[in-house]
């Protein structure tokens, strides 16, 4: 048998997420620099509206560069970074969070962009989320979850439309 395979371990989630955050931060910093430079210079005051966007944009790029300089060598060498859960369980966990997010976006999209009223849409969303989070869809679960979801959705809708006059 040979020793451990000479392959780099997969990039750890903390480091990949940090790299993603750094990239987003750099893009926002660059956007602030570009958009800030298009703001007309001040007339009645010493610095004007463009100073903070330009300064913060430059600061963001500097900080992002420093973070990238710290992250990239480890990433290129494939050094494992700190992780808080086994790699085998990582992607299902991310997938669960992504699925919950997608379900929420779908619900908002349906009630905001289609004629689906808020109360039934919300009841369906709640029922789907409960089934997803509890991983149950049996009769006993439905006997409890359906009235809870319907009562919660219609109760809140009544409260906010009749008492607080929101146009949900």
């Amino acid at each position: 048998m040979t020793d451990a395979p000479d392959t780099a371990p997969p990039a750890a989630p903390g480091r990949a997420a940090k790299l993603g955050f750094t990239a987003l931060f750099a893009v926002l910093g660059l956007a602030a620099l570009v958009a800030g430079s298009e703001i007309p210079p001040a007339v009645y005051e010493p610095v004007g509206s463009r100073a903070f966007p330009l300064a913060l944009g430059a600061l963001a790029l500097g900080l992002a560069a420093a973070q990238a300089a710290l992250l990239l060598p480890g990433l290129l060498r494939g050094r494992p970074a700190e992780r808080d859960e086994p790699a085998a369980e990582l992607w299902p966990a991310e997938a669960r969070a992504a699925a919950a997010f997608a379900l929420t976006v779908l619900w908002i999209g349906l009630v905001a962009l289609t004629p689906l009223p808020f109360a039934p849409g919300t009841a369906l969303y709640m029922l789907a989320m409960l089934a997803f989070l509890l991983r149950r869809c049996d009769a006993r679960f439905l006997a409890l979850a359906v009235p809870v979801s319907a009562g919660f959705a219609w109760g809140l809708t009544l409260l906010f439309t009749r008492v607080f006059y929101l146009s949900l």
Binding site: F21, T22, F25, L28, G29, A31, A32, A35, G36, I39, P40, A42, Y44, E45, G48, S49, R50, F52, P53, L56, G57, L59, A60, L63, A64, Q67
Partner: peptide, 24 residues
């Protein structure tokens, strides 16, 4: 510092309260 920098950037878009200029 990156978190603080991002929070500061996010606070900038909209009407500048001093000059009234639209920015970002």
């Amino acid at each position: 510092l990156m978190a603080a920098g991002l929070g500061a950037l996010v606070s900038l878009p909209g009407i500048d309260p001093i000059s009234g200029t639209l920015r970002l």
